[in-house]
Amino acid sequence: MQLRIDLHSTCFEPLEVLERWQTELKGLGIAESAAESLFVGRVRDTAADGTLLEALELEHYPGMTEQQLEQLAVNCCNRHGVSSCLVQHRIGRVIPGEAIVLVAIGANRRGPAQRCCQELLEALKHHAPFWKREWRTDGSSEWLSGNTPL
């Protein structure tokens, strides 16, 4: 199983990163997956209370975040028997419209690809040590105490 996990402190373009990942796999002589499932999460322009959002601040626990992401990805990918996994996650200040997370799974069937992608996304939302703080356009801010509903 091919695995790649990166944290980005500046804006990343999900489709460009995905293309580079696929080129890298091809360079290793790995055939293109018959099924690929992709999730891109972007920052909304409204805060949880409905007011306009200026930016999201993403804090993390250096070291534990990388370890947790790898453990979650390896466990999930092994359980579903998929062949490749790419996880990209932002840290720092992220503005509305920018990508915050990319999960891309390659497998030989759509079922494992889609199930693994969704399961890994939910796992990292709840078990990788990231924290979001909303900065509103009026200058106020608040740490979020959970995730948005599915």
Binding site: H60, Y61, I100, V101, K125, P129, W131, K132, L144, N147
Partner: peptide, 10 residues
């Protein structure tokens, strides 16, 4: 030892 408030990633 780290005390971790509610996590909100992704």
């Amino acid at each position: 030892l780290a005390f971790l408030p509610p996590i909100s990633g992704g």
